[in-house]
Structure formats: structure tokens, C-alpha cells
Design a protein around this nucleic acid. Structure first.
Lengths: 151, 151
DNA sequence: TATTGTTATACTCTATAACTATA
DNA sequence: TATAGTTATAGAGTATAACAATA
């Protein structure tokens, strides 16, 4: 059917310009991975940021709230509620910091350690899923190139 | 100074596990680029999503709201306000769709076209900044690998 | 019956100001 | 004087339900 009207309509959307931008592609990839992440972490009742916090505490026993905030780009007031929730779930405890009475050291409980172990296994599988179309070399290359952007 | 306390403190935060995940690295890179983007788009009074909308309309005159929403993963109710604002700024107009009386085709005004042209030039420079530590080949590789994840 | 655009609204996420206890 | 943790709160971003007009 021929179109005699002045106002054009769009058949297939041309996204070539946006797709030429690294930032656009990084954002799309991030959203796809985050969506899969959210879905598969639901069984543990964890969000992305909860997993990041728990994993960092697991690998850094005694880490302070401030160190977590700096590492994960979280504002301190926004971390308080997360730690409260994780403490109420008996996955994590606040203990006095050995050298600084202002600070609190964060530690996982036995249940927290177990949950992190399971969640990290799931994340490893998710990671394999998300990058299933990449070879092992390509996956390493991707991570290396991304790190060059943000470090 | 030796530490005799049972509760350990963390000197340098170990982020090696998170950094081994493509998703974590993609997110960090995205945030760094988005921050730079936000800062440099301030002169045009545009957010990331506003630029995406304007650019898509520029390259797809007559595109509908629904097509924009599908392309950019925006919920239709959340697009309405954006288009209203861009229309009030006289950068964009809604016109009747030539084949579907339910829909509206979106078009840029002369001012809108000019702004997109300038903004895209700025974005091209931002892109070069963000990927300045990558060679041209590496940059193409990065985009290609990211596309393999989200398509 | 399904779809486009829209309104109203709720929910989550993120950011800022200000306070206390301690360095 | 500066910093860690906290409270209260505001703002931005995102999601869902429901409606009128049209396919």
C-alpha cells in the first residue's frame, strides 16, 4: 500500500545510532543480566545490592559500613536499612570494631555464610548463562575491556 | 601494631569475586559512563532517557510512543510526561498517525533537530573520552561482545 | 476482543541535612 | 576539626490498574 500522506510512519525502528555507543550497549547488557539475576535470586530473597553486600562481608569479615558504601557506591543512610534487614534475618551481625569505637565491623552468621555459598553458586551459573554465547577467551576480554572503562 | 583481638578489621577491601562477574563490571562501567553523560548533557538540560528519545525520534520521524517504549524498555505511562515536557520545550510535536487514529506520530521541530545534532556531537566526544583507554579495535570488540549478551 | 495513549497512584531507589559519639 | 553510623525526609525513577478511543 502506497503512502501519500506527508506524515511518515515507522515500520522498523532504526536504533543504529544508539547501538554504536558503548554506553548504550553496556546499559542494555547490564539490564538483561540484572533481570535474570533478580529472578534467580528471588528464592534467596535477595536483591542485587543485598547479594553484593553479603558477598563482600563474606570475603572481608569485619568490613565496616563505610568501606561497603565506598566500594559499592551506596550512600551511608541507604545502607543502614539493608544491614538492619540482614541482621533481622540473622544472616549478619554488627560487632564493635577492634580499633575504632565509632565503627562497627560486619560479620556473617553461620546461616549467612551458608546462604552466600549457595547464592554464589547460583550466580556462577547465571554468569555462564548470560555469557553463554561468548567463548571463555571472549568473556575474559569483555571483563578486561569493561574494567578499562571504569577504573 | 599487632592485632590480638578476635574480631578482624579490613585493611584493603577484597573485591576480586565481584570483579570476576561480567554483570558487576558491566554495571560499574555503565555507571561511570552515565555519570559523565549526565554532567555533559546538563547544558542541554537533557537526561539519558531524554537524549535517547530525541535521538530515536530524529532518526525515526513519525515513530509512535509505543514503539519508543518497546525500544527503550520504558513503561507507557512513564513516557507521557517526558513527551509532554519535550513538547512544552518546543523540541518535539505529536501529529496524528497516518494509518492508525489511536496512535500519535512523534516529530522533531527545527529547534529539536538542532539540539539533537549538537547533543549527538557531544555524545560522540563523551564516547571517545569513556573509551580513551581502548583502541579502535578494542572498542568495536567491546560493543560486539556486549551485544552478544543482550540480543 | 486487543491495542494506543492517558491519568492516577503506589512503590522502590537514591540523595541530602542534621544529629551523636568518637578520632 | 573530621569521621562513622544513624534518623528523618525529600526527590527521582519505575511499575500497575483502569479508562476512553480506535483497530
Amino acid at each position: 500500500m502506497q503512502d501519500k500522506s506527508t506524515a511518515p510512519s515507522v515500520d522498523k525502528v532504526d536504533t543504529s545510532y544508539l547501538e554504536s555507543l558503548a554506553g548504550y550497549n553496556a546499559r542494555r547488557a547490564t539490564l538483561v543480566i540484572a533481570e535474570s539475576f533478580l529472578k534467580h535470586m528471588a528464592v534467596y530473597n535477595l536483591r542485587l545490592v543485598d547479594f553484593s553486600v553479603l558477598s563482600l562481608v563474606a570475603h572481608n569479615p569485619g568490613i565496616t559500613s563505610r568501606q561497603l558504601c565506598t566500594t559499592l557506591n551506596i550512600q551511608p543512610p541507604n545502607l543502614v536499612g539493608m544491614v538492619n534487614t540482614l541482621e533481622k534475618r540473622e544472616l549478619m551481625t554488627r560487632r564493635p570494631h577492634p580499633h575504632d569505637a565509632r565503627a562497627m565491623g560486619l560479620h556473617l552468621t553461620a546461616a549467612g555464610k551458608k546462604l552466600v555459598r549457595q547464592a554464589e553458586e547460583t550466580v556462577t551459573r547465571l554468569e555462564e548463562d548470560a555469557t553463554s554465547r561468548l567463548s571463555a577467551t571472549e568473556r575474559r576480554t569483555l571483563i578486561q575491556l569493561l574494567r578499562k572503562i571504569y577504573t
